[in-house]
Design a protein around this nucleic acid. Structure first.
Length: 480
RNA sequence: GGUCCCGUAGCCAAGUGGUUAGGCAACGGAUUGCAAAUCCGUCUACGGCGGUUCGAUUCCGCCCGGGACCUCCA
């Protein structure tokens, strides 16, 4: 069974057919590092992460590149008033753009770690690829697809690339009727976009990396073309981003890259739907957004946030709520309880049985694969996992079955990464000695039928962040 | 104004022309000194109105409601 993915370009499910057999190249539009990463950002990045993990699960070797935009992302791409986001943040805070970029890039990496993201193989910064951008700009100028105006700005000329609009379905006339107005009369067409801009006041400036240019800074779109070409070559298999990237960003990437190489840039374009918060659009301009840090400060773990952001289908709007995080916590616990019991049986801490889970495990694996192969249907894949949890809990499995089932869970974890590592059979030994003493005291009290003392001990242990689990073979302590 | 997506039980969220997700919460039962965890059971839905069909939540049309892009945003 092939892996089929929804391709924004063809508007249907396309089979993943890597240009080089068994190797998949992926490029992801990463963060613009001008503010703290928010949960909406990570909805997209976690989607990319799960995609990568599943493709690897399917036996491919993946090479993943995610850019860090630290220059050139204009607040208003085509208008004269457009301002670089880094510069805008700098103005607001009084710090340098370089300083800001560094801070938020670090924050981004920290969030990746907290949300258990498998790091892309390369995470290049735009500012480190000025020269490579220059090569493309130079070529586009030579080919007459781009033009330079008096002040030194270089624009890509839309009319020279008739396929412009093929990804987003935007048609020229429609755009001209829209809210966007041409106020930059230097441009031949209002939709021509900047490859290079000049501005004396801009903090980040470079001598033009192309012939006949003036000192300035690159436009936003060109970085992705340059960096994907540098690491992955002129043609790549999969390119992802948030749905807002589709236009104009990805449209522009296609135009400049394909005008440059005369080859199809990307086989499969994928876009994650935006997140809603309490059923409302989440955006900076509305101010109703949570940063990753906000959520973690409320006491939720990265795993819980990851689960909450990953559980819905990526092409569906996902409604984020704090209640959803509580649900995530409970759901994760359900899986972990199940895994822990299997470990306990395996290690002899709990009685094994006669139930053979071989067939059930094979079926779960097959269903999980099939459902993920169909455009990464995580929701349905989770249903498979939870069905299997029920089967395990109901059974008294053999040692061999425990091992098989645990392998299944390890695979799920490898792909989804939202449940955590295989639990320990018994964490009692890791608990502080005083808690272990309390546990013993509770046992003694129970023998005496001194329920008051027994319950008091349990409450104390709970207050310390642990809980008692009573079993047929005696009580044990677990982290709550 | 143009293009497009969605509306599923208390909440979240898949899917399908006729069997029927899953999670959370709630309730009843088993277990337990009481709990926790686990198991069993209950709650059974597809925005509204038409149409196509033997049969529609699933296809078509209209309406209502929410959202996306075209403008900063993943």
């Amino acid at each position: 069974m092939p892996l089929r993915l929804y391709n924004s370009l063809t508007r249907r499910l396309d089979e993943l057919r890597p240009l080089v057999p068994n190797k998949v190249t992926m490029y992801h539009c990463g963060p613009t590092v001008y503010s703290s990463p928010h949960i909406g950002n990570f909805r997209s990045f976690l989607f990319a992460d799960v995609l990568r993990r599943f493709i690897e699960d399917q036996g491919y070797q993946v090479i993943q590149v995610m850019n860090v935009t630290d220059v050139g992302h204009l607040t208003n791409d085509d208008l004269e008033t457009g301002e670089d986001k880094m510069e805008a943040a700098s103005k607001k805070t009084g710090r340098t753009a370089w300083d800001i970029a560094k801070q938020y890039e670090n924050e981004f990496h920290e969030c990746q770690r907290l949300l258990h993201v498998r790091l892309p193989h390369h995470m290049p910064r735009a500012t480190d690829f000025i020269a490579q951008m220059g090569v493309i700009i130079d070529d586009l100028l030579q080919k007459g697809v781009a033009y330079q105006v008096d002040n030194g700005d270089v624009y890509f000329e839309i009319s020279k690339f008739p396929q412009y609009g093929k990804l987003s379905g935007k048609v020229i006339d429609e755009l001209e009727d829209g809210a966007r107005v041409a106020v930059n009369d230097k441009k031949k067409d209002p939709r021509d976009f900047a490859l290079w801009k000049t501005d004396d006041k801009h903090q980040m400036q470079w001598d033009a990396p192309f012939r006949g240019g003036l000192r300035g800074f690159p436009g936003w779109h060109i970085e992705c073309s340059a960096m994907s070409a540098h690491y992955l070559g002129h043609q790549i298999d999969v390119h992802t981003g948030g749905e807002d990237n589709m236009f104009p960003h990805h449209e522009c990437e296609i135009a400049q890259t394909e005008a440059h190489t005369h080859r199809q840039f990307v086989s499969i374009w994928m876009h994650a739907r935006h997140l809603l918060v309490d059923n409302k659009k989440m955006s900076k301009s509305l101010g109703n957004f949570f940063t990753v840090e906000d959520v973690l400060k409320k006491g939720y773990s990265g795993l819980e946030l990851r689960f909450a952001l990953v559980r819905g289908h990526y092409r569906q709007q996902l409604n984020f709520t704090l209640k959803g995080l509580d649900e995530a916590r409970a759901a994760i616990a359900r899986v972990q309880q199940c895994r822990q019991r299997l470990v306990r049986i395996e290690t002899g801490a709990e009685r094994k049985g006669e139930a053979d889970l071989t067939a059930a495990t094979a079926a779960a694996n097959a269903k999980f694969t099939a459902t993920m192969q169909e455009d990464l249907n995580v929701s349905e894949a989770l249903a498979v996992v939870f069905d299997f949890v029920g089967e395990c809990n109901r059974a008294q499995p053999t040692l061999a079955s425990c091992a098989l089932a645990l392998q299944f869970f390890a695979r799920i974890e490898d792909v989804l990464g939202c449940f955590g590592a295989t639990p320990q059979a018994d964490a009692t030994g890791d608990a502080p000695a005083e808690l272990q003493a309390m546990l013993q005291k509770r046992q003694d009290a129970k023998k005496q039928k001194d329920w008051a003392t027994a319950d008091a001990m349990r409450d104390e242990i709970q207050k310390a962040g642990w809980k008692i689990v009573d079993t047929a073979t005696g009580p044990r302590l677990e982290k709550a």
